[in-house]
Design a protein around this nucleic acid. Structure first.
Lengths: 246, 246
DNA sequence: GGTCCCGTTCAGAGGGTGCTCAGAGGTTGC
DNA sequence: GCAACCTCTGAGCACCCTCTGAACGGGACC
């Protein structure tokens, strides 16, 4: 069985082979980081730096999903999208776009079931969106879970963004939600502050690990409030999320 | 079967051949020490001093993991990482970095499941991290253990940092944890204070063997507390960890 | 049995890590 | 344009962790 690097079972194609994702961005560092994060999910990833090579890679890979920067040196994302659809009509696309860019034009495109995130984004967000696209497109085999994440009596619905503990609804801010999602995707594993920072905060965030401590503190107030704690500090190493009876 | 120098079975590739690790650091002494520690694990190790020769070695060796200093004379870690991934897409990377350089440049690096340690580090830590990377990447054959280390009724989960004896949870400080990990990786073997010092404490630690005695004393209070002792002193030689009925 | 040395343990200094509060600045939504 | 919220910074604080020094106890060897 195909697994992610984190050890949990990977989301796969219906036939059990790894999902195929193409990353298209002209910034090689960003493309590299994105590829790494997606590979970590157990998927087969390739990268391209411009429209022409994207198309070439796509013809070889026949990707299930494409992470596509709207601004490319030789062409724009929409043209690439059209060509991609010619190669593989059912491909899913996640657009990457600058904040001030043409959001309305994107909105029109995404009506078709595709999605977009604005730069700067967090890796956790990108990966979650791609996962969501694939799942909704029926491209990924529905393993046990679907959109629901469960650790002990803590439950997160990734689609509705609803989080409950012991049935009780918990309201979270966007960052709190991302942080908790990352923790819940890696239960019983110590996650260092650096790991958390890299994964949950934007790639261009210059801040210190102090924010992680702060947000852990926020989460504790909401998730552990008065209850048996699930979030534990491992001094000098990081944080762990564990179900209570362990 | 392939074994470590310490006699216990080595973590191997799925086909049973030794895992391949490339060490890249411009300090030859450090590279040598690191290589030695990794070879001790039964792995095939090669070393390089700069980015260019690292790439050359990588092409020949096709390493499963790379231990990579971020600061290199000819290039930086990001560029090397990219080239390495081009040579072998599924390679794992453990970055070595100076403490003050951490915050800014490392961001994003660990995102793909790679990891890093800050200088000065202990060898035990580096080896453990490489082992963890390989295991999680599915590159290492899953031998009996997985992330769990067991000696008698003493159990250590390296992922969650949880230690129990006879099911009872034991809280350890970072140094205590490292020391116990080293002992548990070498059960029934006498380890000298010098060995322990070299392995568990940072390579630049100037202190004397007295700290080892002190920390053994701490461990005894927590691990052996009231129970049949597992940690034994061998006068003039060192310490041994043994399961009770032996 | 005495002496020396090795190992153990205690007490405490100091530095560091993590937690929390309060508030500024920016963004979102109405 | 205003209000509410969210995010991050800075500072203070408490506690933990690490290491030093010194005193004590018990083997080993003479």
């Amino acid at each position: 069985m195909n697994t992610t690097r984190s050890g949990r079972p990977a989301l796969t194609r219906p036939d059990g082979t790894p999902l195929r994702v193409l990353v298209v961005d002209d910034d090689p560092d960003l493309a590299e980081v994105l590829s790494g994060a997606l590979r970590y999910e157990g998927w087969q990833v390739r990268a391209a730096g411009d429209g022409a090579s994207a198309l070439a890679e796509a013809r070889e890979l026949l990707p299930d999903a494409v992470v596509l920067d709207v601004m490319l040196p030789d062409t724009d994302g929409f043209a690439v999208l059209r060509s991609l659809h010619a190669v593989k009509p059912d491909v899913c696309v996640l657009f990457l776009t600058a904040r001030d860019a043409v959001e309305d034009r994107i909105a029109g495109i995404t009506a078709g079931g595709d999605d977009y995130v604005t730069k700067p984004f967090s890796l956790e967000e990108v990966v979650a969106r791609v996962r969501g696209l694939l799942r909704r497109a029926g491209m990924a085999r529905q393993l046990e879970e679907g959109p629901r994440l469960t650790v002990g009596d803590l439950v997160m619905d990734e689609d509705s963004h609803e989080v409950t503990r012991a049935g009780e609804l918990i309201e979270l801010s966007p960052t709190e939600f991302e942080l908790l999602r990352f923790l819940m995707r890696n239960p019983r594993r110590v996650l260092s502050k650096a790991q958390i920072l890299d994964r949950v905060w934007s790639y261009d965030f210059g801040g210190r690990a102090h924010v992680v401590e702060l947000y852990i503190s926020y989460l504790r107030k909401k998730v552990d409030a008065g209850r048996e704690p699930m979030i534990h500090t491992v001094r000098g190493a990081g944080y762990v999320l564990k179900p209570v009876a362990s």
